[in-house]
């Protein structure tokens, strides 16, 4: 499908590395757990957002990707406010669901954690990103077996063509135990790098 839309910027986080537009900006020790890696990056970048430490790993991953992406894109506040968000993954909130289950497994030691429970939905990550950046546009979260470039393209094109949003934050943010993979990109009419499902799939597989 020809979209007449462009990719403004993209961010990839995997294997203890963070890259922006294909250029690696952070690389850490491969022995670190995801939590340790995320904390190191947070401290190094001095994000000054204490709520980060209360988030589950999925939200932390989405938060980090969006921070790097928005830092690079440098959008005006009035554009940010209207951004649409379309994210996806394979594991939904399974990583946190397991942690919550651990708090209720034993009837003799039954103490369900409210702070863990609030993250037992994958789209909470979108809420965290929206709160941080004051985003009030439409959003959707899809669960699929693998990165589905067609689904994301259709939803993104619809949001922009129907003037619901001028910019759409899209991508794949997946966490399951210590496996994690984030691919986030920003699409809009402006920009110079053409957006299509073929192009974005190629970026996803080669970065």
């Amino acid at each position: 499908m020809k979209t007449n839309l462009n990719i403004i910027t993209f961010c990839r986080i995997k294997n203890h590395s963070i890259s922006i537009n294909g250029k690696e900006v952070i690389q850490k020790d491969s022995q670190l757990t995801f939590s340790e890696f995320a904390k190191l990056v947070y401290k190094e970048k001095a994000f000054a957002y204490p709520k980060f430490f209360k988030m589950d790993n999925l939200s932390k991953l989405g938060f980090l990707a969006s921070e790097f992406l928005f830092e690079k894109a440098d959008l005006d506040a009035h554009i940010k406010e209207n951004i649409g968000i379309v994210l996806s993954n394979k594991s939904a909130s399974l990583d946190t669901d397991r942690k919550y289950q651990e708090t209720i497994n034993d009837k003799a030691n039954y103490f369900p954690s409210p702070a863990v429970f609030v993250y037992t939905l994958a789209n909470i990550m979108i809420g965290e990103i929206s709160i941080k950046h004051q985003i009030k546009g439409e959003n959707a979260f899809f669960v699929s077996d693998k990165f589905n470039e067609l689904l994301l393209e259709q939803y993104t094109v619809s949001l922009i063509q129907n003037k619901k949003s001028s910019h759409v934050l899209c991508g794949w943010i997946d966490v399951d135990k210590d496996k994690y993979d984030a691919f986030m990109y920003l699409v809009a009419k402006e920009g110079t790098q053409n957006y299509s499902k073929e192009i974005i799939k190629n970026i996803y597989t080669t970065n």
Partner: peptide
């Protein structure tokens, strides 16, 4: 408010 709930759980546990 979520912290308040966690504190209630902590008192019990």
């Amino acid at each position: 408010s979520i912290d308040a709930l966690e504190l209630i759980v902590m008192l019990d546990k």
